[in-house]
Amino acid sequence: MRWAASLPLSGRIGLALVVFWLLVAIAGPMIAPYPVGRFVDQEVFSPLTGQFWLGSDYLGRDVLSRLIWGARYTVMLAAGAAALAVLAGTSVALFAAIRGGWIDEFISRAMDTLISIPSKIFSLVLVAAFGSSLPLLLLIAALIYIPGNYRIARALAVNLAEMDFVAVARARGEGALHIAWREILPNMIHPLLADMGLRFVFVVLLLSGLSFLGLGVQPPYADLGSLVRENISGLAQGSSAILSPALAIASLTVGANLLIDALKPGGGH
């Protein structure tokens, strides 16, 4: 709590938003007022009422329930993909940085190639090739963001590997595993966590963008991007069925960004 209080205002807002959406994602099934796929309203695109807090969607389903479930998919997919990307990227980066030589050059060249394919373009190619089931989407998103994490982790690891305390460990006779795990990695944790947060935001934006285009999460599942897409016909009347999932995504990603920015050394300026 003392830690949260030390953040600037923007950071505290970000923290509150992130915690809120994490709780929604975890507790979703328990707090959703209606089953996610049930048609509960006679009307479609009905406004906010006591019965349907966020109105109903284009088929007369409860928007709040669908939003809670959508957030669950969005958060879980993005968190999984971001964690996977950082785990894989950092492991490979540590390996490359410590081995050095042609192995490092080969891996770095391969990662440079992958990073020079714009992420959304790459995701379209991969979705077209492999399909878009939930596990595949998670893997695709992770794959796309591995090279970015690799680059950052490798730069960190190479800098650390040149530090004198690593030279001391090498001169002591320590093996590569000890050096990577005990000497280098503990000093990378903070920037890596920040990077994971950023990748989380990227994945949320990527997957909801794909879903919005109808190429991401497929029915019967729906993430927040899918909710915006399926209710696009309600745009003309400014229906909450389309605005609330859009705002939900924005509050999640903006919140995460504000939090990460406040945690940076000298953050929040």
Binding site: D164, F165, V168, A171, G173
Partner: peptide, 24 residues
């Protein structure tokens, strides 16, 4: 070099800020 040989020669670097692992 053997572990014993490494033990017998120890180096102390100039800048203790970078010679000590700040995470430890």
């Amino acid at each position: 070099r053997s572990k014993e040989q490494l033990r017998r020669v120890q180096i102390v670097f100039q800048n203790a800020d970078t010679a000590l692992n700040p995470a430890q």
